[in-house]
Amino acid sequence: MQAHVLEGGFDNHAVDSSHAFRAVMTAMARPGQIATLQGALPPAPLSKAAGVVLLTLCDPETPIYLAPSHDSQQLRDWITFHTGAPFVTAEAAIFAVGTWQDLPVSAFAIGTAEYPDRSATLIVECESLSNTGAVLRGPGIKDQTALSLPKTDAFQSNAALFPLGLDFIFTCSDRLAALPRTTRVG
């Protein structure tokens, strides 16, 4: 195992993860709002923000799917060392990481009628992230906002599945925004 696999985690796990979770929670509660995260230095190609999300939310109880864009031995070793999360196929994943093009969106669990929470959360690595583009409305949004989504129709059909569906976290460098299934994309 290479030395840098052991590096890049939280310095003070309890405190760093508390700040990180607050940022992620606020993002999920306020779709489209962009937050800046600190605390992790994962190996490329994983962004800092995506690394922080994995360190904050993942452990041996959360199987992860890595899209081809992110499936390297180095990244697997880093995630294994810092979280202990197992790697699985898209169908069995609770979290997934990758670029939009490489994520098999229709393969992930969308929950069941009795347990809609048993659905995957997709961490989508983006080239850019800004409050431009698609118009968002719904819970967490006062009137409306905008977010640079990689696509529009996929998120419209996801919202149509409500209360089932996927939830998304968009990451770019050290920044992140979220889009739960409740958000209506215009």
């Binding site: 993860s17 979770f21 992620v24 929670m25 999920m28 509660a29 904050t56 939310l57 993942c58 452990d59 109880e61 959360t62 609770i94 809609p116 929470d117 659905s119 959360t121 967490g140 409500f162 209360p163 939830d167 739960p180 299934r181 409740t182």
Partner: peptide, 13 residues
């Protein structure tokens, strides 16, 4: 982490 994941799903639904 287990509680945090539940909170995120709660906010999403």
């Amino acid at each position: 982490r287990m509680i945090r994941r539940a909170i995120l799903k709660g906010l999403a639904i």
